[in-house]
Design a protein around this nucleic acid. Structure first.
Length: 218
DNA sequence: CTCCCGATAT
DNA sequence: ATATCAGGAG
């Protein structure tokens, strides 16, 4: 899985310069998911597992017209809801998780989306990555860094970490980045990972940090 | 570790 | 045909 990055030397010394260049390249790093409130963000983020944002937005455009409250999700029919989110993949698991999460929010969180890491992690279908996104984008709380497949790949290619476990990568990044940088780090890496430092054929010749990257093939 | 799983790029 | 997509649960 990660064999394409055999032995990248530690490059944390260049973190500041790399991040500065990437920030200049992606100044307005905003999430691509469409949402109007914490509940919509939570649902959209659960749906986004192993699925492109474009696909999620396509599904939620209709979904959010039909499902507006936590009660709507709690009372949803599993089969019908599964059909509504079918094209995001893992539809049966995601449907079960979202409906179960709605019940937990009604019974344990006073019908509100939890606004703490601990609370969010109690919801099925919500792990650290999803929780970090909801905390930062819906509640303005930066407790950690959302480590998805892009953040993982780029952090390893750039030599910021040698770990493969997302939680360990998050710890490494937290230790390297300054407090202020945590807000945009994840999103900046994701945008660069989608446009330039893609998984299969990274476009190193177009990369603004290729001279600082130990994995660059230019 | 395996499983969940459709859509898309290569 | 195969890898990958803003992962998480068992």
């Amino acid at each position: 899985m990660d064999r394409e990055i055999p032995l990248v030397p530690d490059n944390t010394a260049n973190f500041e310069r790399i991040f500065e260049l990437l920030r200049k390249e992606y100044p307005n790093a905003a999430p691509a998911l469409h949402f109007k409130n914490p509940l919509e963000l939570l649902v959209a983020t659960i749906l986004s597992a192993q699925c492109t944002d474009r696909q999620v937005n396509q599904v939620t455009q209709k979904l959010f017209r039909e499902y507006r409250t936590i009660e709507d999700y709690a009372s949803a029919d599993l089969t019908e809801f599964g059909r509504d989110i079918y094209s995001t993949g893992f539809y049966h698991q995601k449907a079960k998780h979202i409906i179960a999460s709605a019940h937990i929010m009604l019974t344990e969180f006073e019908g509100q989306v939890p606004y703490t890491m601990e609370g969010l992690l109690r919801l099925p279908g919500v792990g650290r990555k999803t929780a970090n996104i909801v905390l930062s984008r819906a509640f303005g709380k930066i407790e950690g860094i959302a480590v998805d497949t892009h953040v993982k790949r780029l952090s390893r290619r750039l030599g910021f970490t040698q770990e493969t476990n997302p939680e360990k990568i998050e710890q490494d990044l937290m230790a390297i980045a300054k407090r202020k940088e945590l807000e945009t780090l994840s999103m900046t890496l994701i945008l660069h990972g989608r446009k330039v430092c893609v998984a299969r054929k990274p476009m190193c010749e177009m990369c603004v940090v290729n001279e600082l990257c130990p994995s660059s093939r230019v």
